[in-house]
Design a protein around this nucleic acid. Structure first.
Length: 425
RNA sequence: GUGAGUAUGGCGAAGUGGUUAACGCACCGGAUUGUGGUUCCGGCAUUCGUGGGUUCGAUUCCCACUACUCACCCCA
């Protein structure tokens, strides 16, 4: 156990970490284009925040939280999602005091006590944005747009935005009643899961894979949520769609789409890839800020996971541009060159070149081999002869051309990307 | 939470109830003098997840445990 990571966690090792950095950079750059600013909130919060914000009845709160009592006797929880903490920060710091729309983005670890499987971890990393303030459907469209835009910039293909509206406190309860009315009498014909869903979240029955349940739904003529929207929600949804069309953001309607968190109102969407589960999604949450104790403030946001994006990217055969390789490998040919080699090494770095050397006492041949393995562009060979002459033998590992140059000229040659004096020695 | 599968060297992967556990990759060393990427030669698991049991004898059979993987639920 001592040398084993906790279940559902991962070590992101060199090589992989380059992909993470590249992806995070895309997120930061893209968010800047849409004028989102970063917010960093604690990795843990008071348990009550998630219980109230995310919803007591959700799977996340009822059985997936990493909750513990700290030494002061307070119940705290490792955040299972990002929105609640951001909203809490918005309220606590009174960001609503500013007349502007508040547009925030975040990247960070989230925690859920689940059984790990493909694309599912106990510690995973989400990136997401929140727009706080506007009720305007253009805000919904913008968040959907950046959600899809980011995934495309990562290099993912075959993306589909599935769009729905889950209504508001006016029309959702009404719809729920209609469903209960029709389904309760035939509840015994539903599968076990759906009988539970009937009481907890009847909307989900539409999502059941069981054919019989779907048949029952059709027989009793259960209305979809889209058919039951109130006028305000209907108008809002139509406008969101109009904006998406104007922005060339493709989507498909999915009137069976439900999201796992209680706080969603009106617009809800998910981005999917064939053969995978959701790679991200979001929605509007008009009641959340007030629920958490702030002034009535509409909001809309989305979240996606780095793990899943990388997984899909890899399986689709894509990859993010790899980090730049080493510029110079310094090979130490003999004892007399040790000190000058360190001098050279540090000088190269101070000039902005990525440089390294062997520390295992390997022979020159092995050092060249290492240089090759490290994919260094150049190898600077330094031995007693060079030290005596104040020079360095510089070899271009791509062409094999090498030449002896003054020690001070190494930076110049490497920076310029070539050796002019091509006399092979 | 429910169900299924798998656990052999750094990685991938054969294998058998019985004296020395294939192979590939990676790694290390060598093929005369201070030089890489190719080639050739050599090296690299007293040990087969952990603990029990069956047996004259188990890595191979049985049980338990642990871990991992996958599906369901749900989600990112």
């Amino acid at each position: 156990m001592l040398t084993q990571r906790p279940r559902g966690t991962a070590d992101i090792l060199p090589g992989e970490s380059g992909q993470w950095q590249a992806m995070e950079q895309i997120i930061r750059d893209t968010c800047a284009l849409y004028h989102f600013e970063e917010v960093r909130t604690p990795v843990f919060e008071h348990t009550e925040l998630f219980a109230r914000g995310v919803g007591e009845t959700t799977d996340i709160v009822s059985k997936e939280m990493y909750t513990f009592t700290d030494r002061g006797g307070r119940s705290v929880t490792l955040r299972p999602e990002g929105t609640a903490g951001v909203v809490r920060a918005f309220v606590e710091n009174k960001l609503y005091g500013q007349p502007h729309t508040v547009k925030l983005y975040y990247i960070g670890p989230m925690f859920r006590y689940e059984k790990p499987q493909r694309g599912r971890w106990r510690q995973f990393h989400q990136y997401g944005v929140e727009v706080l303030g506007p009720e305007h459907p253009a805000a919904d469209a913008e968040v959907i747009a950046i959600n899809l835009d980011l995934l495309r910039r990562f290099g993912l293909r075959d993306l589909t935005v599935e769009l729905n509206s889950v209504g508001c406190p006016v029309c959702r309860p009404r719809h729920r009643e209609q469903m209960l009315e029709r389904l309760r009498p035939v509840a015994d014909r539903l599968c076990g899961d759906c009988q539970q869903r009937l009481e907890r979240n009847p909307l989900r029955i539409f999502d059941c894979k069981n054919d019989r349940c779907q048949q029952v739904l059709a027989e009793v003529g259960a209305p979809t949520i889209l058919e039951s929207l109130c006028d305000d929600c209907r108008r809002h949804f139509e406008q969101v769609r109009a904006f998406l069309d104007a922005m060339d953001v493709p989507y498909v309607l999915n009137d069976r789409l439900v999201r796992g968190l209680d706080y969603y109102t009106r617009t809800a969407w998910e981005v999917t890839v064939p053969g995978f589960s959701s790679v991200g999604g979001g929605g509007r949450y008009n009641g959340l800020v007030a629920e958490v104790g702030g002034p009535e403030t509409p909001g809309v946001g989305f979240a996606g996971s780095i793990e899943r994006a990388l997984m899909v990217l890899r399986e689709q055969g894509g990859a993010l541009p790899q980090a730049a390789r080493l510029d110079v490998w310094v090979a130490v040919a003999d004892e007399a060159a040790e000190v000058p080699a360190m001098r050279l090494l540090q000088r190269l770095r101070s000039e902005g070149l990525r440089a390294d050397r062997d520390y295992l006492g390997k022979g020159l041949k092995a050092q060249l081999k290492s240089a090759d393995r490290m994919q260094a562009a150049y190898c600077a060979i330094l031995g007693a002869d060079e030290v005596a002459r104040g020079t360095v033998t510089l070899k271009d590992l791509r062409t094999g051309v090498q030449t002896e140059v003054p020690a001070e000229a190494v930076v110049h040659h490497v920076s310029k990307g070539g050796i002019e004096d091509g006399s092979t020695t």
